[in-house]
Design a protein around this nucleic acid. Structure first.
Lengths: 193, 193
DNA sequence: AAATAGAATGAACGCAAGTTCATGTGAACA
DNA sequence: TGTTCACATGAACTTGCGTTCATTCTATTT
């Protein structure tokens, strides 16, 4: 065979792409730089991907799928719902730290409908996961009775904020524990209403 | 004088720019479109602004200043710290709704140091504001004793998430009330630890 | 009416980036 | 050794956009 197989080349392009996209965002990322870092020529990139958008889409899909699997896996055996929430938060923050740059891109930058679709699906799935934890919490009497769907949305919103903060200004860091404490306990003094 | 004064022209450029930036993001915004919407020629834009970046910077600074003033104003006479937090959250969400598009740009897209500086200053100011509310809450016995700085950071992070959620997927809306409830009370059942 | 100056124009320039394609390379097999 | 096929190249093409500037317009002044 040749120096590299098609699969190897494709993978090195994706590996390079994830780095460049993370560092520069979507618009500022050039095929030339991705190619350079992947150790392939500009034209070579177009053997494996139809265009820039397809590279990005492939990457996004891969990461979302991987995250969903890991998150689901690491929660499924936890009994205590509060513990499950803590764990879920921790996983999110870890992943966010690892893929800082890409998360920022997701704010906007490109409005590919293809990407929007898989993102919506992803978030919906995550919401369902959370809802099941909350339901568990209420049924077992550990969580305040509440609107499950609404609460799940709020928690996801909260998480998103932690992630964004983590990702935007690395100086104002706070730990997963601090996040969990706020989500679980709130800031009002217990016993007062 | 002429058809329009310099001030009028400058303002109509800014008004057009805020719309286009909101709709398209920074990179996708073209001077040509801003000019068109402002009812001025391409060259005309460059009479009033050095370049694209300066337009964006001017806009950002204006909005941050305005927000800071409004937020400060609307909180300063509120006694009850929980009420002040609620109010602060509501103002944030309202403003976010109004300037959806621009907020998304702020995730990344451009790394102008000039913009980063005024943003940092802004967020620092907001954090101080929150810290004073929290301190007030603890002193008056209504808030759980806590690390004030840390808590302020966490609340800002939380808010950021609510805002992002509000801005990204308009279908998964939740009300300022729901947000306040979570931040103030948490999701754990009161009385249990 | 002529002169002046502030405001405005838009064709043209330069450059950067996505994409294409005619051509090259080298391993495997005949 | 020659042929084939998969992989690879990078110059060239195209497009789009930020920016400039020689020129025009119009209202005020002289």
């Amino acid at each position: 065979m040749n120096r590299r197989t098609a699969t190897e080349s494709k993978e090195s392009i994706l590996e390079a792409a994830i780095k460049v996209f993370s560092e520069k965002g979507y618009s500022q990322t050039t095929i030339r730089e991705v190619a350079k870092r992947a150790g392939i020529s500009v034209g070579g990139v177009y053997i494996y991907f139809k265009n820039k958008e397809e590279i990005y889409f492939t990457l996004l899909k891969y990461l979302l799928d991987e995250f969903r699997d890991r998150a689901g896996e690491s929660i499924k055996d936890i009994e205590d719902p509060a513990e499950a929430v803590k764990n879920y938060i921790a996983i999110n923050l870890n992943y966010a730290k690892k893929f800082k740059g890409l998360i920022l891109i997701e704010g906007r930058e490109h409005g590919f409908t293809s990407c929007i679709d898989i993102k919506k699906k992803f978030f919906k799935g995550q919401r369902k996961l959370l809802e099941s934890i909350i339901k568990n919490g209420i049924d077992s009497g550990k969580f305040e009775r509440c609107n499950i769907k609404g609460t799940a949305k709020v928690i996801i919103g909260t998480l998103r904020g932690f992630i964004l903060s983590l990702v935007m200004d690395s100086d104002s860091l706070f730990s997963p524990e601090e996040c969990s404490v706020l989500i679980l306990n709130g800031i009002l003094k217990r016993g007062k209403k």
